[in-house]
Structure formats: structure tokens, C-alpha cells
Design a protein around this nucleic acid. Structure first.
Lengths: 141, 141
DNA sequence: ATAATTGCAAACACTTTGCACCTGT
DNA sequence: ACAGGTGCAAAGTGTTTGCAATTAT
């Protein structure tokens, strides 16, 4: 079937494992290379760029651009229905939450019906502070 | 009052006028420099970057990053209560809509109460397709 | 007079490409 | 054997910084 084209290599396995391990946050290419290096694993930046491009094309990863970081962030996605739910992103810790929620989906309908605007959920990210970071802030205040 | 700090220069007037003229769409720095050059007006790229940064700091412009274009886009913004309403942005035409809507503000409350996440409205943009672009697409399909 | 602004060139940061070598099938 | 993958170094982009000349006050 849609058997992943191409060879299976050491590097690809390492990169994919890393993305899966970190699937609840965005990672940059530099982060991947740096974090792997810390573990004594060396993978070329070029290789990461190329393989991630491939994963994005195949729909197994997603590319995001964020306001804060310069450069792109990548994230593993097993779900192919990111256009069917909203996403929350904590600006403190970078946690990325896929939020299945009927109430929120009603809002997309409301915006469509009353404001004539079709929200693209896969491109939209609701930025804010997650509960854990809010708790931390309260302690430090 | 909040008298804009700094000198008033020819270049700044030109750049600000350009942004105001194009306030319903986002523009890149290159577009500004190029479009002005077409009119026979020459402004240094550095100057545009620096002045726009200033405007962004003062809250008179906004910086966006988009999936399609590489690099940042800027847009003039006059309102100062942007953390009290949501924003819609059309990924086709770049139209940017400040949306005062109680129903939408319920989103923030709901997400806070039921999902323990505090949305920052000024950092959040709802991306999608506006009615005009949706109509255009239908015609071309 | 003097403090701020301009804009070139150079430095940066992120990403892509060319190419010789290596690896998986 | 050979199609495909790797990674260095070099080339591309978009953005920022150093600095001498210019301009606004």
C-alpha cells in the first residue's frame, strides 16, 4: 500500500523516534540535532531537514511557524484530523494540545454562520498559558 | 500625551502612509521597499525594518508569520484593546478582522473553566478564509 | 549644537543545494 | 550493483548590527 518509500536508515529511525517521543510539543531542527548530540548521537542538520520535509509531505509530521521562535517548528502527527479540532499552545512551556471539544467546534460553526468566515482549525493555534505554568507563576508571584 | 517619541522624517511618513493605505492586508518589508521604488520613492530596507519594529512596540502595527510566505508580514493596527477581542485573518487575501463578539468571548471562558487554559487573545489569530475569498474560490472551482 | 535617523556593508540565523562518499536493498 | 541517503561546505533568503554621514529639533 502506502508503504513508506525509501530506505530505512539509522538516522531516519532516530529522527522519527525523537519526534514521537516529543509529540506533544513543537521542536525545531536545531533542537533535534542538539538534543540528540547531548545523548551522544550525531545526525546531520541537512539530513533532519530533508527527512522532515519527507514526513511532512507524507502527512506524518506538520510544520508550524510561531510568533516567538524564528524558524519553523515540527511536530509528529499520527492523527490526520487536525483540521477537525482546535489546538492550544502554552507560550511558557511550549506544550501543544490537540483539543477535541464539541463546544469549541460550535464556535467554528458560529463564526461561519454569523461572521461568514471559515476557520481553518489546522492553521489556527490558540495561544495562552497552561494550568501547570499558571500554577508555577502563582507560586513565584 | 502618548506623543510618538522620536523625530518626524520623510521616510517615516512615507512608510506609515504606505501601511495605512494597505491597512486591510499584510505586507512584507520587501513589498514595501519594492512598491515604493515603483513609485520612484527610495527607502532603505534597514530603515523600514527599524521603523516597523518601533511601530510594533508602540502597538501601531502588528507582526505576523504565515505558513505560505517566508519571512514576516506587517500590518497597521489602530485599536488598543486587542486583548479584549479575537482576530480573524484570511490566509488568502491577508484581510485582518477585529471581531467584537460576546459569543466568541465565551470561548475564552469555556477554555479556562473546562480545559484550564488561559487564552491570550492578543497573541491568538483565527486563520481561515473570508467570505469574499470563499466566493472567489467557488467561482474558480 | 546635539541627539536621533538613515542606509550601506557586513554579520547573523535559518534553510536549501551541490557533490563526493556511504548504506540499504 | 545501484538507487537512495548522508553530511560537509557553499550558496540562498530574510533580518539585524556597526558605523559614518545626514537630518530634525
Amino acid at each position: 500500500m502506502t508503504a513508506s518509500k525509501g530506505y530505512k536508515t539509522k538516522q531516519r529511525e532516530i529522527i522519527l523516534d525523537f519526534l514521537i517521543e516529543n509529540k506533544e510539543r513543537h521542536v525545531t531542527v536545531d533542537e533535534i540535532v542538539f538534543d540528540l548530540k547531548e545523548r551522544g548521537i550525531s545526525v546531520g542538520k541537512t539530513t533532519v531537514y530533508r527527512y522532515i520535509d519527507k514526513l511532512v509531505e507524507e502527512g506524518r509530521a506538520r510544520r508550524f511557524v510561531t510568533e516567538e521562535k524564528n524558524g519553523a517548528c515540527f511536530q509528529y502527527v499520527e492523527c490526520n484530523d487536525c483540521d477537525e479540532h482546535f489546538h492550544l499552545k502554552c507560550v511558557e512551556c511550549g506544550r501543544f494540545i490537540h483539543l477535541e471539544c464539541d463546544h469549541l467546534n460550535d464556535i467554528a460553526r458560529h463564526v461561519y454562520e454569523d461572521h461568514k468566515f471559515t476557520i481553518d482549525r489546522s492553521k489556527t493555534v490558540l495561544y495562552g498559558i497552561c494550568d501547570e505554568c499558571a500554577a508555577k507563576k502563582k507560586v513565584n508571584a
